[in-house]
Amino acid sequence: MEIGVHWDQCEANGICVGIAPDIFDLDDNDDLIVAEGPVPAQLEGDVRDAIAQCPKAALFAKD
């Protein structure tokens, strides 16, 4: 699984960071950072939760 972002929809509110901090982060300018490459299998559940809880539906799985 890889993660896609609709950057024009992302508000970088950090909900995803709270759910999956090993995959998502905010930089010093509060812009979203997403870990590169495939999501480790043990973190896929957290990432799917983060995708589902994104208030702007800016995140999606690229399976």
Rank of each mutant, 00 (worst) to 15 (best):
A50I: 12
A58E: 01
N29E: 06
D8C: 05
K56R: 06
E2L: 14
C54S: 08
G18C: 07
F24L: 15
D25H: 15
G45F: 13
G4D: 12
E11P: 00
A52G: 08
D8Q: 07
G14R: 11
N13C: 12
M1Y: 09
P38R: 10
A57Q: 10
D63N: 04
V5Q: 01
V34R: 09
Q53A: 15
A20Q: 12
G4T: 13
C10K: 02
A52K: 08
K62S: 01
D63E: 10
R48K: 14
G45Y: 15
I23L: 12
D31I: 05
A52L: 11
G45S: 12
L32D: 00
L43N: 10
G4P: 11
E44A: 13
A35F: 00
H6M: 04
A61D: 05
A50T: 10
K62Q: 13
C10I: 13
P21L: 10
K62G: 00
A35N: 04
P38W: 01
I15E: 10
P21Y: 06
D22I: 02
P40D: 11
L43Q: 07
W7T: 06
G37Y: 00
I23G: 14
D27V: 04
V34S: 05
E11N: 00
A58I: 03
I51A: 02
C54L: 04
D46F: 07
Q9V: 06
F24P: 11
C16I: 10
A50K: 09
C10V: 08
G14L: 15
P40N: 12
A20K: 13
G45K: 07
I33P: 07
P38T: 13
D8K: 11
D30T: 05
I19Q: 12
